[in-house]
Design a protein around this nucleic acid. Structure first.
Length: 470
RNA sequence: GGCGCGGUACCCAAGUGGCUAAGGGAGAGGUCUGCAAAACCUCGAUUCGCCGGUUCGAGUCCGGCCCGCGCCUCCA
């Protein structure tokens, strides 16, 4: 049985999708006004783990992730640069998708854009007006949270405390706003000069932030769907407001399971532009950090815990990934004796598979999952060292490792990589001088290859090479 | 002030009442090797932020305290 922590209920609960065997998943995507930093990607990697695990467990997953391509910051920053919004947004949207691919995040089924769903949002806002949940004020339309009794149920905030419990220094004076209540939020914003505006049945203007997710999730996943994810910072106000809008409009429960990922900090401190620790993938690439090592690092801390990013932890993640990759390499390249699969390997594979499933089924306990995966690696290596693994065993182990990797996604994609001719020639030369016992020259060649990212291993079956990332 | 997460070996990180406190990294010793690499074997917390309490028994439950971090109107 799979169990997840549900933010709304505040406890770990059995996971039961609305339609057996199928999971409808909505994950909050980026607002494309800047390059994503590793904190953003932590959330996406967590969602990838969730989705890959569900697929691994046999579910069909329909995954939708929004792209917010109109909002205050986009308008502000595009304006400051003097760039058309469409061009401005494209740069960061493209970078976002590159980042997903680099981190081996399995693509969603759809990436709906806010600007392409204005009519869907208008329809919901019209409905909310008709039902009395929304009101007009100076060309804008607001949602009245007083009309929605369940307001605050996700974030555990009591409506009457909202006014007084705001962070010190950030209190909101009701009269600064043109709303009936300071806590009401905008569904539709009146047009302003220089801002994008749509002419709709509501009048001219642009959508508020929250309404897009209500519109696009219900359009593609239904008015009630299984899982909605995001960072903890989205709990309030974003997801709280989504619930209010969606449930007020449809009269049905919006989401069955809310999963929120905690934040990433760097060297024990919150990321901040002023601290210069808001790393992007490009920043890390410039330091020679491979995306797969980063993926493993982001994956390795349970999603409901704060992840402390350090460069030491990156090195450790890299070493751990290397261990798994080396094991796969061994299975692919070692000359195993002929023979049928033996009971030791079968038992090992069955046991680690059981632990892997059981671990991740427990609210995505990734540590338990990784323990199972490393158990397979360690025990199989021990059997190999004792010469107890035949060809058929190796195939069974390979299949098991590939199976885990459907979730972890850290193994090299394609093999059969060919070595540049000059490097291949060097390896041949080294073999010649080695048999002539000219070890000085042999070691020189090894150093040359290492500087090109190639490690040589002399085995009983001959020399072999592999690539290492710096 | 409200809501929430966490303090377990040098580092990362499981474990939520009971066999010898997972796993990974780093480290030490050994096997193998021309030397390496990889792999394997061995070692590594009498102890789980601190103080009380409950219990035959607590890292695990209860109370108190200390420390770190996050969210509280648009930041994943």
């Amino acid at each position: 049985m799979i169990r997840f922590f549900d933010t709304l209920r505040g406890e770990v609960v059995p996971f039961e999708p609305l339609v057996p065997g199928e999971v409808r998943l909505y994950t909050c995507g980026p607002t494309v006004y800047n390059y994503n930093h590793i904190g953003n990607y932590r959330a996406y990697v967590f969602e990838d783990l969730l989705k890959r695990f569900l697929v691994f467990m046999g579910y069909k997953v329909v995954h939708v992730m929004n792209i917010t391509d109109v909002d205050d910051k986009i308008i502000r920053d595009a304006g400051a640069k003097g760039v058309p919004i469409a061009d401005f947004v494209k740069v960061y949207t493209d970078a976002f998708f590159e980042g997903l691919a680099a981190l081996r995040i399995a693509p969603a089924d759809r990436y709906p854009r806010a600007t392409e769903h204005i009519p869907d949002m208008v329809r919901i806002i019209q409905g909310l007006l008709a039902k009395g949940y929304a009101y007009r004020k100076d060309g804008s339309i607001y949602f009245s949270i007083a009309k929605f009794p369940g307001y605050g149920k996700l974030s555990k905030i009591k409506r009457d405390e909202l006014k007084t419990t705001s962070r010190i220094g950030a209190r909101i004076e009701a009269d600064e706003y043109e709303k009936e209540s300071a806590q009401d939020f905008a569904l539709w914003k009146a047009p302003k000069p220089g801002e994008p505006s749509w002419d709709t049945a509501l009048g001219p203007g642009r959508p508020g932030w929250h309404i897009e997710c209500s519109a696009m999730s219900s359009k593609y996943l239904g008015e009630t769907f299984d899982i909605h994810c995001g960072g903890v910072d989205n709990i309030f106000p974003h997801h709280e407001n989504e619930i209010a809008q969606s449930e007020a409009f449809s009269g049905k429960p919006f989401v069955r399971n809310w999963l929120h990922c905690h934040h990433l900090i760097v060297d024990g401190e919150k990321m901040a532009k002023s601290k210069g620790n808001q790393y992007t993938l490009a920043d890390l690439a410039a330091r020679g950090i491979s995306p797969v090592a980063l993926r493993f690092l982001l994956l390795g801390t349970h999603y409901r815990k704060v992840l402390n990013f350090t460069f030491e932890a990156v090195d450790q993640a890299k070493a751990a990934v290397q261990r798994i990759q080396d094991f796969a390499y061994e299975l692919d390249h070692r000359a195993f004796p002929e023979g049928a699969a033996g009971p030791d390997v079968s038992r090992l594979v069955a046991e680690s598979d059981r632990k892997f499933r059981q671990g991740l089924s427990d609210d995505l306990n990734i540590a338990a999952g990784l323990t199972a995966a490393f158990e397979l690696v360690r025990e199989a290596n021990a059997l190999i060292a004792r010469n107890a693994v035949g060809k058929a065993d190796a195939e069974v182990l390979k299949a098991a490792l590939r199976s885990f990797d459907r979730v972890l996604a850290v193994l090299p994609e394609a093999k059969d990589e060919t070595l540049p001719a000059d490097l291949a020639a060097l390896i041949d030369e080294r073999e010649r001088v080695r048999s002539a016992r000219d070890f000085k020259r042999a070691d020189e060649i090894r150093d040359v290859l290492l500087s090109r990212g190639i490690v040589l291993e002399d085995t009983r079956d001959g020399v072999r090479w592999k690539r290492v990332r710096q």
